[in-house]
Nucleic acid binder design. Structure first.
Length: 486
DNA sequence: TGAAATGTTGGGGCG
DNA sequence: ACGCCCCAACATTTC
């Protein structure tokens, strides 16, 4: 056992040095009490149960850990297995005086962390958790009746904005003295097995830069190139009009506080801040998702609105498969699903459109969509994913009403008017004229022939009729309406 | 952060 | 000049 006492900073969804309250406090304690600081990451593949994140997110984690380790000059201790065992083993190997971490909010993380806190405190270890991933703690925001808000606007405007200002970001602590004890056994990043055996991630590699520096660069890029046109450009999927920070926020390569204040700062002295307010409210939606998950922990598996339990899903496997693989025959849907598959990302506007299509036109259970997104998205964030799917399905808190059904043709024509986005991910439609790019099945056969498209061969016929499936969805919804009126 | 159906209005063609 | 019709444009209602 190393003679020097140790303070563990347990990294989880906070893979950064800047604005990291647990790390800052661990460093402060280490300096006052002459302790050794142990930056630790534990990979526990079983912790999330049925809600484990998929391959894309694991690819991101791999590279984010590489970045964190490099920023720590290699001094990042890696272990795998259940957190309790890994931490207990460390208390055997080292004279652990304190364990600090930043809070996570998924139900099993809360349960695990609560147990760990009790367990290690009873052994005389100083265990502390900190707020780092949310601007407002879910338990601090309550309505006048003292219960949880269920509607976004009052939650955000009255609950969040009128309560205390988010914490100002902290600088990175000085870690120049940080050195792991000699001979401590540990895994390499490769041994964690986060990368798939088949290298399907090559295109992701070209588009994304995981890690704290990449996150910071992307934030800067957003402020320089898109922030002042956000409200107008954010809905255009062929344009980089959004900040695309979701994967970084998921793993905490930067904090929402850093984003909040950086963007606000960029708007200082400007009169028109509609772009700022719209952007900040999107961070508000992220908060709201975590808030809902905290107060209603059953929502990953059950409808928030229990009346939806009577809804009869069709769940046709071949329709689900066509949706997943981007072969529905409806261009904006297929482009979105292919963007997801190829790049690990999908533009938010398109997420809403493909979500509506799966749940309404194909009448597949939102949980099937949620699972697919969780498997494919780099930003696979349980809270946001679940809240958004329930929103689009109509079963969620402050959800879109069920009858609000997107028409993918109109959405395409409205937000991808030149078909640029569709053509990027459905190159077989590149020569189809603008007039028919979102509805090739309506094009006269000579026009399709000139475009080199033979429907059913080069590109699928639509798997459903949009008008009929819309009406069928509304009919199916009658059951829910009848049940809720009863 | 919807779309379709239905209702209303007003301009222009035309007998 | 007038009434009538048509229909686009816009507003409201409904799902």
């Amino acid at each position: 056992m190393s003679s020097k006492g140790a303070v563990i900073c347990w990294f989880r969804r906070d893979l950064r040095l800047r604005d990291n309250p647990a790390l800052t406090r661990a460093c402060a304690l280490a300096s006052v009490e002459n302790l050794r600081i142990i930056p630790l990451f534990i990979l526990d593949d079983g912790d999330a149960g049925d809600f484990a994140t998929g391959g894309a997110s694991r690819w991101w984690l791999h590279h984010s850990l590489v970045s964190l380790r490099d920023n720590l000059n290699g001094q990042l201790l890696l272990r795998s297995g259940a957190a309790k065992q890994a931490l207990s083993a460390l208390t055997e190997e080292l004279d652990v005086r304190a364990i600090f971490w930043n809070r996570c909010y998924e139900p099993w993380q809360i349960a695990r962390d609560t147990e760990l806190k009790t367990h290690f405190k009873s052994s005389g270890i100083d265990v502390q958790s900190f707020q780092a991933s949310l601007l407002w703690e879910p338990w601090d925001i309550k309505n006048k009746q003292g219960s949880a808000y269920k509607v976004f606007t009052p939650y955000y405007r009255k609950g969040c904005l009128l309560s205390k200002q988010p914490r100002l970001p902290k600088a990175a602590p000085d870690l120049s003295d940080c050195a792991l004890p000699e001979g401590l056994k540990q895994n390499t990043i490769d041994e964690l097995g986060l990368l798939p055996s088949i290298p399907w991630y090559e295109q992701m590699q070209n588009e994304w830069q995981p890690g704290e520096q990449g996150a910071s660069d992307r934030l800067t890029q957003y402020i320089e190139s898109a922030a002042f046109a956000y409200r107008d450009q954010r809905n255009i999927p062929s344009v980089v009009g959004t900040s695309r920070l979701s994967p970084s926020l998921h793993y905490g390569e930067l904090s929402p506080n850093q984003v909040w204040y950086a963007v606000k700062h960029a708007f200082e002295g400007r009169e028109d801040d509609k772009h700022l307010d719209t952007y900040l409210s999107e961070l508000g939606w992220r908060e709201f998702s975590y808030y809902l998950l905290y107060h209603f922990p059953h929502i990953p598996s059950d409808s928030f609105n229990a009346k939806f339990d009577v809804f009869k899903w069709e769940n046709a496997p071949e329709k689900l498969r066509a949706w997943q693989t981007g072969n529905t025959g409806i261009p904006i849907i297929d482009a979105g699903m292919r963007e997801l598959w190829q790049t690990g990302y999908m533009h938010n506007r398109v997420r809403m459109v493909v979500g509506s299509f799966l749940v309404k036109n194909l009448r597949c259970d939102w949980r099937l969509g949620e699972a697919w997104f969780r498997d494919c998205l780099l930003d696979a964030d349980l809270a946001a994913n679940v809240a958004s799917w329930q929103w689009v399905a109509g079963s969620g808190a402050d959800a879109a009403p069920y009858f609000r059904i997107f028409n993918p043709v109109l959405q395409g024509e409205k937000f991808d008017s030149d078909g640029e986005y569709v053509k990027k991910y459905c190159p077989e439609l590149a020569e189809v004229p603008k007039k028919f790019i979102h509805k090739p099945w309506e094009a006269p056969s000579d026009i399709l022939k000139d475009a080199g498209v033979w429907l059913g061969t080069d590109y699928p016929h639509p798997i459903v009729d949009l008008k009929e499936s819309r009406e069928a969805a509304l009919d199916a919804y009658e059951v829910v309406k009848a049940a809720s009126n009863a």
